[in-house]
Each structure stands twice: as structure tokens, then as C-alpha cells.
């Protein structure tokens, strides 16, 4: 088992004829993901690597029963693409695109919430259930399948941890790259809830970073609702205030969003916080050996 996606997830790729969409549709397919269709308005009837392309999401859903869409379209076309997927009844949408105008993101999430649609991202690496399904841009070979759930605001840092765990012989149930934007869909709390309920996840890793208060809110949620052990990590402990550290959402504003506040909140909720990426692996290893 796993959360959000598995071997039965039927995925369409919006923007499959673009450079990014084409490359990653191929990589996802090679990994074993069921890529059932692509959508590019105006290119219906063509094929990309043997995947049929449709003019609309509605048509792709009607023909293939797709239940997930990965969006690779350029930033200014992204809101329209996501609204189309929501309108077509897709229940899970992963928006990989970075640089979505903030007001477009607000409208996207408002529309998704009104219809109960789960949105992963934007500005995220996607989700991977190792050995079963990959949506997005994770390098599949870096992960192995196992019983640890991983939630992270960062892409490459997720790979770093996945790789470290694999080298230690530890695998993941699912890794959810929730994205680095200030406003995201599937967040830390949503992911925690899913992993807590997943009978094939024993331990959860929660990778946060500076900016906003999502970690503090997650900590409050953990205190009340999560029984599984959690290992935490916060990137940006040494970041200067007032500077945007790569991600649109990674900024300490005034005295808000500091790593110190997040670390304290985690620790108060019983989350063991690692100081370095390799320490995350050590802490998980210790928990795994206790569980065995």
C-alpha cells in the first residue's frame, strides 16, 4: 500500500508535447507509471512515445478513465490547464510548473477546494510510490520501496534523503514533494493524515524549511492526531532574514518563519529533529531497528 498513488493510478500528462512534458512522460512511463494519455489543445490525434494525445482533458478522461493529471505547461497557461482538469473531474492533480503568478495560484486552489480536488504543488517534484508509480520529476532509481513515508517542501533534498535511505537499505512507502510555493494544495497536515492511516507506513519523515508557519501548524496537528514516530528536518537554519532562498515560500519575514521556531514546535510535539540530512537517515535507522 501507499498514499495518493499506486500501481493502478491512471495518469494523463498535460503539456505532453512540450520539452518538459515529453521528457518526463517518457521517464514516468519507463518507471512503470500508467501513462494513459497526454493533453495538448490543438494536437489531438497525435502520439508521443506511443501515448495518445487528446485536445481536452474531458476527452482524455472519457477515453481512458484517467484519475490523475500531471501538469507541465508554462506558468501563465497553468491556471487554465488546472481548471480544465478540475472541470473534467480529475481527483488528483500534480502541478510541477514553477513560477505560477500568485493570484493564479489563489484561484487554482479555491477552485480545487470547492470541488474537493487534491492538488499537489505547484512548484513541486511530484509524488513517488517506489516500484509502483511516479508522477512528476523524481529520479525514480534513487528510491527503494519500503515502509517510511516522506513529506518534503524541497525536490533535490527529497532525493538526497531517498538516496541516503536507500544506501542504508531503507525504503519508502511514498514520497510526497509538496512544493516550495507559499500557497500549496496537499500540505504537511494532509500528507501526515494519509500516512497515519496507511497500514504500510511505519515511520514518517517531515522535511520543512524556513518561511511561513506550516511546520508550526503541522506540529499542533501531530500532538493531537499522529501516533507514528516522526523524524523532522528544517532546511535554512542559517539563512539570513528577509532573503528569498530559492523557493518563493522560503523567506523569513520579520521574526516569522524561522528555523528555530519550527524546530521548537517539532520538538514540543515529540518530533525528533535531525540537524543534517545524514542524521535523518541515522535517526530512521535507529527507529527501524527498534521496530524490528
Amino acid at each position: 500500500m501507499s498514499v495518493l498513488i499506486n500501481k493502478n493510478t491512471k495518469v494523463i500528462v498535460q503539456g505532453i508535447t512540450g520539452a518538459m512534458g515529453k521528457t518526463h512522460a517518457g521517464l514516468m512511463k519507463a518507471y512503470g507509471t500508467k501513462i494513459v494519455a497526454g493533453v495538448t489543445p490543438g494536437k489531438g490525434g497525435t502520439e508521443v512515445d506511443g501515448v495518445p494525445v487528446y485536445d481536452s482533458v474531458a476527452e482524455a478522461v472519457e477515453k481512458t478513465d484517467a484519475n490523475c493529471s500531471v501538469i507541465f505547461v508554462p506558468p501563465y497557461l497553468c491556471l487554465d490547464a488546472a481548471l480544465e482538469a478540475i472541470d473534467a473531474g480529475i481527483p488528483l492533480i500534480s502541478v510541477i510548473t514553477e513560477g505560477l503568478p500568485p493570484m493564479d495560484a489563489v484561484k487554482l486552489h479555491a477552485a480545487a477546494e470547492a470541488k474537493g480536488v487534491l492538488v499537489n504543488g505547484p512548484n513541486c517534484p511530484g509524488i513517488i510510490t517506489p516500484g509502483e508509480c511516479l508522477i512528476g520529476i523524481h529520479p525514480g532509481s534513487i528510491y527503494m520501496a519500503g515502509r517510511v513515508g516522506l513529506i518534503s517542501r524541497s525536490g533535490t533534498l527529497t532525493y538526497e534523503i531517498g538516496l541516503g535511505l536507500k544506501q542504508a537499505g531503507i525504503g519508502l512507502s511514498t514520497a510526497v514533494g509538496i512544493g516550495g510555493d507559499p500557497i500549496i494544495g496537499i500540505d504537511q497536515i494532509t500528507s501526515l493524515k494519509l500516512f497515519e492511516a496507511d497500514k504500510d507506513t511505519d515511520i514518517i519523515i517531515l522535511v520543512g524549511e524556513i518561511g511561513g508557519s506550516a511546520e508550526e501548524e503541522a506540529a499542533d496537528y501531530i500532538k493531537e492526531h499522529i501516533k507514528k514516530p516522526i523524524i523532522g528536518y528544517i532546511a535554512g537554519r542559517t539563512a539570513p532574514p528577509g532573503k528569498r532562498m530559492g523557493h518563493a515560500g522560503a523567506i523569513i519575514s520579520g521574526n516569522k518563519g524561522t528555523a528555530e521556531s519550527k524546530t521548537k514546535a517539532f520538538e514540543a510535539a515529540g518530533v525528533k529533529v535531525a540537524k543534517t540530512p545524514s542524521e535523518i537517515v541515522d535517526l530512521v535507522k535507529a527507529k527501524v531497528s527498534v521496530a524490528v
Partner: peptide, 17 residues
């Protein structure tokens, strides 16, 4: 010089560490 915001922050933190 790194790739990805999170990994770059983690690397910066490690240098201080």
C-alpha cells in the same frame, strides 16, 4: 553552487555545522 532550493539551504547549513 547547488541545485534545488532545499538542498542548497541544507548545504549552506552543513557548511556552518
Amino acid at each position: 553552487l547547488c541545485n534545488g532550493a532545499g538542498l542548497t539551504m541544507a548545504t549552506m547549513d552543513l557548511v556552518f555545522h
